[in-house]
């Protein structure tokens, strides 16, 4: 048995699709090609097999995702993860929040920031720089987007360059996309270990 999670956690859960994923042995040549450009080549997840239903979108989204999150230069990887996490918390994508809180903690070799965020949400005790980054990404993720000139000023006052701010806009916006797939098309689940 497995149960659906409703609370934020850094312990990455499983993901159970709400639609039937594409079966790998029934995939078209186009689907097989798109499945190979995902970050994990060794095992194709149910999530990616679900997205393979729209193979044209999957084929362009995977390299775009990797470029926004991992291309060198601009904002640090950990700070891009903070942008991703802020959006995932607004949209309550438990799975995305777990993955990107965990990556943030690993990159920083420190769980303090993500512990604070999961315990206190937008009232977390953060450095001025993390505060500016988190608030901008959080407000950008609202619908309609609610970040304003004061939030942009806060980023500049915290010392962010144009290149860093651009990467933050992109990483937070990317999770507006990812959350609407992961949170909408499936449930975050944890296997019951039994008594």
């Amino acid at each position: 048995m497995s149960r659906v999670l409703h609370k934020f956690t850094r312990n990455v859960p499983g993901w159970r699709p709400r639609v039937t994923p594409v079966k790998l042995d029934e995939a078209t040549p186009e689907q097989l090609t798109a499945l190979q450009v995902t970050p994990s080549n060794t095992k194709v997840s149910d999530y990616v097999l679900t997205l393979a239903h729209d193979v044209e979108s999957l084929a362009v989204r995977s390299p775009l995702f990797n470029a926004i999150m991992y291309d060198p230069g601009g904002m640090s990887r950990a700070e891009r993860e903070l942008g991703a996490l802020a959006a995932s918390m607004v949209n309550r994508c438990i799975y995305c929040a777990a993955v990107h809180a965990d990556r943030h903690a690993q990159l920083e070799k420190d769980t303090t920031v993500t512990d604070e965020l999961f315990a206190k949400g937008e009232n977390a005790d953060l450095t001025a720089r993390d505060r500016a980054i988190f608030d901008f990404a959080r407000k950008s993720a609202e619908a309609p987007p609610a970040a304003g000139p004061a939030d942009m000023d806060a980023l500049r006052n915290a010392g962010l360059s144009d290149a860093e701010i651009l990467d933050l806009i992109l990483s937070a916006a990317l999770f507006g996309w990812a959350n609407r797939l992961m949170h909408v098309l499936g449930d975050p689940v944890r296997k019951e270990t039994g008594a």
Binding site: S140, P145, A147, P149, I169, A173, G176, W177, R180, L181
Partner: peptide, 18 residues
């Protein structure tokens, strides 16, 4: 989901430009 991304990048770039 794509539209959610696109509107937020555009909104962010407009903010950046003031």
């Amino acid at each position: 989901a794509f539209l959610a991304y696109q509107v937020r990048v555009i909104a962010g770039l407009r903010l950046m430009q003031g």
